[in-house]
Amino acid sequence: MNKTTVVEQKSHFAIKSGLQQLLVFGSLILLVIFFSIASDNFFHFSNLIGILLSTAVIGVLALGSTFVIITGGIDLSVGTVMTLSAVMTGVFITIWGLPIPIGIIGGLLTGALCGFLSGFTIARLGIPPFIATLAMMMIAKGLALVISGAKPIYFTDNEAFMEISLGSVLGDLIPGFDIPNAVLIFFIVAILGSILLSRTIVGRYNFAIGSNEEATRLSGINVRNWKIVIYTITGVFTGIAGILMASRLNTAHPSLGAGYELEAIAAVIIGGTSLSGGKGTILGTVIGALIMSVLTNGLRIMSVPQEWQTVVVGFVILLAVYADILRRRKA
């Protein structure tokens, strides 16, 4: 291969890779335009804030899932681990009466511990990620019910806890700019995730493992330990989502959260992250999660029954992945 053809291929490729990001973002803009025209109630500040707010929980879950999916793995437990984190936060704050910050740390540690255990069973015991996290999904689901006695735990004595999600630090600073904290936290977590993935050694190894696990191992990298680290990171993100959800509902609901993992995975995939690993971006996942929320919100405003909304989302996933396959086939 001579030098000039290599150069051509490269610029060709750079355009294509940028194109894909643009494509996903473009679809989001198109959706927003479409719903704005289709319904007068869509493009309103309060509705847009509502969309962002409803994106926050799934969005943070999806951000966490992006990490494991880039390694070529999967985490099916994020939905119920999120619930367990919420329940544990409830136990610490409402039942044990611990201060809110301690409760939050407890919730985050719960998520981290679950992620660590999933990572351990995958990396050390060699259980396939699908099965290990399926087991963790059921363990977390059961534990959430056992610990809470299958009853919701309310945070009614702690007004401040609700502020975590629904208060507005930004609104206090800039009057009228009432963006809920949950949305702010979602974007902060996204920025942190993006830095983690692109600027740190964790992110570097994350892509290396997803790109070629055996070659990475044969480069003297302790792949097993790094996988445990990565699943633990996903667990921490899951814990954050759990606290956001509990705060938003002012309740730790022990039976809510199952099924969220699939929506999170869907957001990651729509965002262009490859299930076979080695490829993906945080920005893509954020846009993917927004596309899902805009779709559900827009369809609801257009009075499409909820059952049909789910059907549409299903087709969008097929479309997004097929578009990606087409693009790759051409490349």
Binding site: I201, V202, S211, A215, T216, S219, I221, G278
Partner: peptide, 25 residues
């Protein structure tokens, strides 16, 4: 790592040395 660039591949066995505080690339 076919999907990754020359620089990542050439430094894969030594990535740890190219960090600040063992964390930042």
């Amino acid at each position: 790592l076919l999907e990754m660039d020359v620089s990542t591949n050439a430094t894969l066995a030594t990535t740890g040395r190219f960090t600040r505080a063992g964390f930042w690339m």
